[in-house]
Design a protein around this nucleic acid. Sequence first.
DNA 1: GAGGATACTGCAATCGTTCGCACTTGGGTG
DNA 2: CACCCAAGTGCGAACGATTGCAGTATCCTC
Lengths: 345, 345
Amino acid sequence: MAGAQRVKLTDVARAAGVHPGTASRALNPSTVSRVSPETARRVLKVAQRLGYVPNTLARGLRTSKSFVVAMLVPDITNALFPPMVRGAEQVLSAAGYTLVLTDTDNDSDTERRQVEQLRARGTDGFIIATARWQDPLLEEIADHGVPAVLVNRNIGSRRLPYVGADERTGIQLVVEHLAGLGHRAIVHLGGPSDTSTGRDRASAFRQAVEGLGLPTGSRLVQVCASYTEAAGAEATTRMLESGQDMTAIVCGNDLIALGALSVLAEKGIRCPEQMSVVGFNNLAMVERLTPPLTTVRLPLHQIGELSARLLLAEIEGGPQNTGAIQSLLGVQLAVRGTTAPPPPT
Amino acid sequence: MAGAQRVKLTDVARAAGVHPGTASRALNPSTVSRVSPETARRVLKVAQRLGYVPNTLARGLRTSKSFVVAMLVPDITNALFPPMVRGAEQVLSAAGYTLVLTDTDNDSDTERRQVEQLRARGTDGFIIATARWQDPLLEEIADHGVPAVLVNRNIGSRRLPYVGADERTGIQLVVEHLAGLGHRAIVHLGGPSDTSTGRDRASAFRQAVEGLGLPTGSRLVQVCASYTEAAGAEATTRMLESGQDMTAIVCGNDLIALGALSVLAEKGIRCPEQMSVVGFNNLAMVERLTPPLTTVRLPLHQIGELSARLLLAEIEGGPQNTGAIQSLLGVQLAVRGTTAPPPPT
DNA sequence: GAGGATACTGCAATCGTTCGCACTTGGGTG
DNA sequence: CACCCAAGTGCGAACGATTGCAGTATCCTC
């Protein structure tokens, strides 16, 4: 009752007076040339009339192709991911694929289980937003030649195609903006070092500071344990207590920036008058805070779209062509209210 | 290469020295009783050792069950939905089901196409967050007896099971809170009237106002064209221009409240001193606005979980049992900074 | 010790498609 | 006229699991 459709290929074939095999060929664009135009037209018409919808399961069983793509995210309630999911979904569903969303809850065991499940289901490919810097599961995936594209976070080995934002340029823009305002004592609260984003942003930060000839030092960067407000607050406290000279904080992402802002408020340090703060990601609503958060805008939707496109190419074109292409999309600096010239000394 | 797993039931059977049929029975909890305990143990062990994972497609083809559930949301970037998705996903994946997420982009044609696609794929059931008050597609689904559960938004005919928040009580709490602060001139910016939430909240608002003996009137409610900041701003302007006496605004949701707040700021009306504003939904970060938004907290995660549970019951128990159960989960009022006693007259 | 019930297990059909192979036809060529 | 080629179609075996049916031990009972 609730099951699949009732009219099957056999019905169409019988109604059109041909063998099921022939009907199959007539209905399949890539094999329709092997059947006479007249027959093809007839079968197509009958199929239309009967409202034939091919059974994807049966087809998948035979062809070992499922037209299913899975996307792994660590936590869908993190506002970073929905736009990427949406971008990917639009591309995929336009190409006749179905997107399976999997929330791994930031847990690698869950992740592994889910991936097993999905592969058993014949999933054609994976879009993976959960990569850790060294990730045995992803190495296995690369070994097995499973079509997969990484988004947002990369892995150290660079063995899989990656689509992300040009984070280094983003950080560069931030530091230049701050330097342009007159800041010289700029510090960084970095994301976790087992994520590519944490590492890249921190390294880009150091490079930008050096490039501009600003004072450097090992205490310029504090690493946060995770991309959360709590971890940001904790790192801010550490940074303040280290006695490091500072007039501006470049945060690993917006949540970390929120943590920094609350600690500053607590300690009575006013932002932006006494301390400038910059986020990263441009989460929803950060422009409505008081003061509105200066941050870096990432092309999340585009990242989702492009990752889906690359994955489709890999699935349909075979494993060779894309190699492990690394693509970085442009970012924009959104200057708002949390940055201002440093206080006069 | 990219295909499914390689060890199949036949391999397990051969390695265990039994017939595939027997192996199948040994591996399936519901039929394991039909096989000797000793054999069962042996097969299980071999399966474990070889890392056997059943091919879901083949199984589905035979049993006409896919262990796939689809969830339809109008826009995954709307922060209302991710928690529900997450709740549903956790329940489903624990039960061995896979969740397919579909973003309909608020478009009924897209929605219909997606549903066709998914049914062809043998989807076992639907969780639907896109319901409109009168929705032909959903009536069809009800007609065909496809297992489906509505969340967040209901349909007029009440023909499908529904899981939502107890919105009426939420509005009641809001109005009581405002009345308790001394407000008597309370108005409502309602959500679109083609959504159940828009209708319910508006009706609950009227009832609460009357129940408390506050002044009533037809101009107490302005309907917003959509659940967006822009529509909220527009309705606020209309309300102010109508000359209606008012000291507090109860908004259909948080986005509408944001629209209201910006119009008030524009006109120099201070919140909460001169005008109290209340939202609905408790979106992420609204507690960090200045002032933090008073709103109603919905058990979104729970709604997702429960909807998944109900759907599973319907799928596995057959169509009869749940009927069209309507379940409402409790809400909480979050009193923050946008509500205060009315200005002295 | 014979008959029958019971407990396991093997056999083979089946789910709906796809696709390699073989067959038939018609037309072109030497 | 004999031969061959190619186009079009039918045939049936897969894909990997489930399941009704039937067969064979095993054990109990009288």
